[in-house]
Nucleic acid binder design. Structure first.
Length: 346
DNA sequence: TGGATTTGACCGGG
DNA sequence: CCCGGTCAAATCCA
């Protein structure tokens, strides 16, 4: 089993190298490509090292869970879900504290403060708090399908003190729900105003709220950069090759401007934490590296995502065509994808 | 009218 | 007791 994993990783690494060779003459920014690809390769290295060293990450099935579409519902994920089921709210709350947590910093490049951090999931805001020492309040979102499907995924969105154009989005828990957002462009599914004291007063006005949403979307992905970080914790459903045992490890990636022209901010780690979407997204990257290159940013959101990413080529290797077709069907956007937001631009 | 948001209250951990 | 996180009633809106 482990040997198979290594083989898969090695193949993935080779494929990434090939991809690198293909990308270089085409990419808008070779440095960007190189940076990202080096990141991917380094993830492979770490993953392989870990496998050789033993299972630093934990259970082998965690690793298995990230390999290939056949393990979309990883055993760990199921166990994880079971752990969270049939518990009183308090227990769930306690459990939630142990749930995987990771943070993204998304530059939204908006002076208006009306930018959302849409990630293709349906979120429902359930609270907002002023945080001590923070200039902006923190908004709390939970998965819309929590009641219906028991999905305990939550996220917190807070505008960065240092750079108000950056949203710090902390995700907690993995989505266990079946999202219906797949039917619509991921980035357009859940526009949410970010907590901003300057605008929060307007939120009572629904029309303004809607306008905000539009503005959010129109500003989406126009930021000068995307900076992601991972406040690592060990995910229960898959491994953390780069930072498997160092929760305090924070990795910040600053992306050059050349990567900013995209609307893929809507696809964040959550997408990739979901095995089926993670793979498909990466597939689409493989298929259309230039068109979709922007959302590499999101792929970089955390090492965990990279973990997911690197698992994809292995599947491609096994059955390239079939998986690619599969991926296209799975991708959250249609062929018009980046421009589906046109309706939001007036 | 049903779903989403707002917002003050509530709770538990540190 | 403070603060972060959640609840839930009131409110908003399509």
């Amino acid at each position: 089993m482990e040997e198979t994993l290594i083989n898969e990783l090695v193949q993935g690494m080779e494929l990434t190298k090939q991809l690198k060779n293909h990308l270089y003459p085409l990419a808008s920014s070779p440095e960007s490509c190189d940076f990202l690809i080096q990141k991917i390769l380094s993830t492979y290295d770490k993953a392989l090292s870990m496998l050789n060293l033993g299972d630093l990450v934990g259970e082998p099935h965690q690793v298995a869970g990230i390999l290939g579409p056949t393990t979309q519902s990883s055993p760990t994920s199921e166990n994880f879900d079971q752990d969270l089921n049939d518990q009183c709210p308090r227990d769930v709350y306690k459990k939630r504290k142990t749930m995987p947590r990771w943070t993204e910093q998304v530059s939204v490049g908006s002076e208006t403060g009306l930018v959302t951090a849409d990630d293709g999931y349906n979120w429902r805001k359930y609270g907002q708090k002023d945080i001590l020492g923070a200039s902006f309040p923190r908004a709390y979102y939970r998965c819309t399908h929590r009641d219906a499907q028991g999905c305990l995924a939550t996220k917190q969105v807070q505008r960065s003190d240092k750079d108000p154009s950056i949203l710090e989005i902390t995700y907690r828990g993995r989505h266990t729900c079946i999202q219906t957002s797949r039917e619509i462009p991921a980035f357009a599914s859940t526009g949410k105003e970010i907590p901003n004291q300057n605008i929060s007063h307007h939120l009572g006005d629904g029309r303004k709220r809607k306008a905000h949403e539009l503005e959010l979307l129109s500003n989406y992905g126009t930021g000068p950069r995307v900076k992601t970080e991972e406040t690592g914790e060990i995910f229960p459903s898959f491994s953390f090759p780069s930072t498997p045992i160092e929760p305090e490890n924070v990795e910040t990636i600053i992306f050059p401007d050349s990567l900013k022209e995209n609307n893929f901010l809507g696809i964040d780690s959550q997408e990739f934490l979901s095995p089926e979407t993670s793979e498909s997204n990466f597939f689409s990257l493989l298929l259309c590296p230039l068109e979709n290159f922007g959302f590499i940013e999101n792929l970089q959101s955390s090492d965990s995502e990279i973990t997911e990413i690197v698992s994809a080529p292995t599947s491609v290797t096994n059955s390239p065509i079939g998986n690619l077709d599969f991926s296209l069907d799975q991708v959250d956007f249609d062929p018009n994808f980046p421009f589906d937001t046109s309706e939001f631009f007036f």
